[in-house]
Write a protein that binds this DNA or RNA. Structure first.
Lengths: 347, 347
DNA sequence: GATTGGCACTCGACGCGCGGGAGTGCCAGA
DNA sequence: TCTGGCACTCCCGCGCGTCGAGTGCCAATC
């Protein structure tokens, strides 16, 4: 009973503080939330909540502010995620359905997510480790230069340029190269098409032994380039960031909060780590304030989730101040992730 | 003589103000710049400069600050660009030489530029209107779905998925499609390979009439997709932005300066326009404060230049506060543009 | 035992007044 | 044309007093 009301008070404090950005006092609380008790009672509850470390006051005789622990409690115990309204869902679907290719899907997702949440959005490109090789194309640009194009089932295309000239003085003969390429092409396709990236990469190693002596250098170079392209983008996905303009809404605490965040946003590796923990399971993960390893980001929270195929999920989410609308943000993140997953399935 | 000294005073004011970020007074000026005259004389010069609108004082009895017009004069008449030192050049070369493909070149350029200038860097992807079609590849993903890959001489790769199923109830027959593709492939290559994008797009229009009746739908769809891919990225280049963290150094005037800038940075069209004026000629262009059409950006300057082939240059540059080190920034922009151009030539 | 009203207390926000000091403008003399 | 001197302006920082929101605690009440 009493315990219940205390949690209600906590919830009210979080909600008001998120809205007003100002410490909230006992009177304002009872006025806005019909708690059915007097300010004095709320004060007692507040004292108890403060003892538990869930709220704090910036200075004596100021209102209360939720601590990280308080937000955590709020998110874990006090949040019920309402599904989005039908019009909202339709808007999301419309926005994402216009995408023409994978790049576009990611770009649109970032944009959408940042607009929905009014925070900085981060979307990881789908990881490719589980995608398969759809096609490989060899194009001779010049006699001494070969373009290798790798097309994956995810729709992703990687390309590498292979130099053949170095070493031999005058560069190789045009016809030799063409002949070599013609010989190599079917073997290459046979070796890798349809396989998962890891397996395809392994199969590449055997290729040089299977071709004519004079094509060995060519084959080795091509295999290297392909292996490079495969490992490059299977290991860790690239990242798209959007909605940086929302940082301008960080009213106070600019230096302490925005500067390190701007730096983190450029360090894609850090970002990846931040949102990457969220890929497991279907749930939306929330990291609040200093809970993570980056103490510079102690006043920012991360709301993220995985999307895409269950066996190789990518991450997507937002980064914002600890003082944020968690329920709304979580719903938005979840919705976008679902729609993007669906689109990727269809593609 | 007198005129010369006045300009020297202006230069000194600009230099000091850029360094200290504070209005500069007559005494400090003579102390730091060995002008050979007394503060009183400098004061007279300052009054004259103020009459000409080149400097202003934030309030009575404060030091002077350059106006946009003052910066303009400084840039136009008082700036001699020193070439970068050998080690600096080598550092740039090293940094850019590691790039593996076009994307990487652009990414690295943005990064390099933002680090050199400590400003927000913007690099336009090379425009493709003048590049030629190197290769087109058709890959059947499923019987009802075809992947069209367009490879350009610039190293850029575009892809589109073509749906064949809609309309016909059960979807087309596998063999039919394969046959159609086999028939189409050589015609397609013959029609577009080696041509500039514009010409290739025109040639596409004639294709459907040249194939067998039963392949007409297929051909039309493919031609549409290719045309789409061509026009999409020939009209206006994409843009890469980096060094946003440098915005955190905007000491004062955060709301008035950083917010609109952050917004502009997300509007790539606006950015393109900002730096795009700079493509003509080899020179570095400087837009100072409100000289441009965007009055929200009245306290920011743009330093940009063209790079790449003379007949179809792309733009690259930085955006920063009007109070910036113009000579240093201009040299950095110029150097990076030159190196990138060279790399693109080689590739 | 929980709740409530009352009351003293704390402490930041705000407005005000007041030197100090940097910087200017102007003038007379060199 | 330059220079030293001098009066003037006005921002900045400081200290002070007031105000008010908010708390903590206690005794009374349900």
């Amino acid at each position: 009973m009493v315990e219940d009301r205390r949690l209600a008070v906590l919830r009210a404090i979080v909600e008001d503080y998120v809205r007003t950005e100002e410490p909230v006092g006992s009177r304002a609380l009872v006025e806005r939330h019909r708690l059915g008790v007097s300010p004095a009672t709320v004060r007692n509850d507040m004292a108890a909540l403060e003892d538990e470390g869930l709220i704090a006051q910036p200075h004596t005789s100021a209102g209360r502010v939720p601590t990280d622990k308080g937000y955590r409690m709020f998110v874990d115990r006090l949040t019920t995620l309402k599904p989005m309204s039908a019009p909202e869902r339709r808007a999301i679907a419309n926005f994402l359905d216009g995408a023409v290719d994978l790049d576009d899907v990611v770009q649109r997702s970032v944009r959408l997510l940042s607009q929905l949440t009014r925070q900085v959005a981060v979307v990881q490109y789908p990881t490719l480790s589980s995608s398969t090789v759809r096609h490989v194309e060899l194009v001779t640009l010049t006699p001494a230069r070969l373009l290798v194009v790798l097309i994956l089932s995810s729709g992703r295309v990687e390309q590498r340029v292979v130099e053949l000239a170095e070493g031999s003085a005058g560069g190789p003969d045009v016809d030799d190269v063409e002949a070599g390429v013609a010989d190599l092409r079917p073997r290459l396709l046979g070796a890798v098409v349809g396989k998962r990236i890891v397996e395809a990469a392994a199969a590449l190693a055997d290729l040089p032994g299977q071709v004519r002596e004079e094509d060995r250098t060519l084959t080795t170079r091509v295999a290297e380039a392909l292996g490079d392209a495969m490992s490059d983008h299977s290991a860790e996905g690239r990242i798209a960031v959007g909605g940086t303009a929302n940082l301008a809404r960080y009213g106070d605490s600019f230096d302490s909060a925005v500067r390190p965040l701007l730096e983190a946003l450029e360090e894609h590796v850090v970002l990846l780590k931040l949102i990457g923990e969220a890929t497991a399971g279907g749930a939306v993960t929330v990291r609040i304030g200093a809970e993570g390893p980056y103490h510079e980001l102690s006043s920012t929270s991360v709301v993220a989730t995985g999307y895409g195929p269950a066996e190789a999920p990518a991450a997507l989410g937002i980064v914002g101040p600890t003082r944020m609308d968690y329920p709304g943000t979580m719903v938005a993140v979840r919705s976008v992730a679902r729609y993007v997953s669906r689109i990727l399935d269809d593609a």
